[in-house]
Amino acid sequence: MFVFQSKVTCIINRDKQRDLQYVQEYKPENGNVSHLRVLLYGPVGAGKSSFINSVSNVLRGRMTIPTLASATTSNTSFTRRYETFKIRKGKGNPKTFYPFVFNDVMGLEEGSDSGVRAEDIKLAMKGGVREGYKFNPLSPLSERDPGYNPTPSPDDRVHILVCVFSANSFSCCLPENSDWVSVSAAIPQMAIVTNIDAACAEIEKDLKNVYMSKHLKKKVSVRHSAVGIPMNCICPVKNYSQEIQINDEVDSLIVSALRLIIDFGDDFIDNMQTSPAGQ
């Protein structure tokens, strides 16, 4: 048993280092794009902000808090504004950052008068939302609003859309809008499933059981049907929450998901080179 666990640990460490090196060396080849933009969306409390923090932890090798995340369980969204989060690379001066950024939007909520509007997500994907725009659940962003960006650049556009949901919750309220489907279909999509340890006792006992858990596979399968994202594009992760030091097993799942995000997003950026106006 000890020998088996040691081999598994070695594999986890090897995979983490391989994926980490890949991420650290990534650079968009399209000269018109300086960074890959990742848009995270999903139900309230799914762990969108915490995933950004967790990615930062892995890449910087220590605990960090580039974005504030809710410390309590709530039915309302903690994120209110459209903000871009960069992750610092190295410790030199002047500051340098990784060539990918994250945007976290207000959470999806049940009802037409709460949570982020599907129209706002659609505009964000096109690059039509300015930095700092405050989401209004009662009214979508309009062309008359100061938060509207009428001339988005290739950098402003979203290059990959990532749905974040919790394995420990049945909430999966997605925008019911045919227009949303047609727009999002043009952008690569994948999903992150969080709180896997809270959803399965075997995973909570040992994170290495993540790919052997039938319970988790069943939960992911339900989400796969709901969001229409292929099973091999849904990545299980455990966000950093209670830990005060980085952990190889937690890191390995996070950086594996990040590598897939970069691969899919970079494919979209490459296609932008040969498509007029990035369409």
Rank of each mutant, 00 (worst) to 15 (best):
82 Y>T: 01
125 M>N: 07
115 G>N: 08
175 P>V: 11
131 E>K: 11
151 T>W: 00
108 L>G: 02
110 E>D: 06
172 C>L: 05
1 M>I: 07
191 A>F: 05
164 V>Q: 02
122 K>V: 15
104 D>E: 11
250 V>Y: 08
135 F>H: 04
270 D>I: 06
160 I>F: 02
192 I>W: 01
88 R>H: 04
104 D>M: 07
143 E>K: 15
237 V>M: 03
44 V>W: 04
37 R>N: 15
252 S>C: 11
263 D>V: 14
147 G>S: 09
168 N>R: 06
227 V>F: 12
117 R>Q: 09
273 Q>P: 00
58 V>N: 04
253 L>A: 01
58 V>E: 01
75 N>T: 09
259 R>F: 07
203 I>N: 06
115 G>R: 00
69 A>W: 01
79 T>C: 05
264 F>D: 14
256 S>T: 10
226 A>W: 00
114 S>C: 02
82 Y>N: 04
171 S>I: 04
48 K>V: 08
41 Y>A: 15
180 W>I: 15
15 D>S: 05
198 A>T: 14
26 Y>W: 07
111 G>Y: 02
70 S>H: 09
242 Q>P: 03
8 V>K: 15
129 V>L: 08
219 K>S: 13
140 P>C: 06
4 F>L: 05
119 E>M: 14
179 D>Y: 11
227 V>C: 13
42 G>E: 14
22 Y>C: 02
85 F>C: 02
262 I>A: 01
211 Y>L: 13
44 V>Q: 12
136 N>G: 03
143 E>Q: 13
221 S>Q: 00
155 D>N: 15
57 N>S: 14
212 M>Y: 11
215 H>K: 01
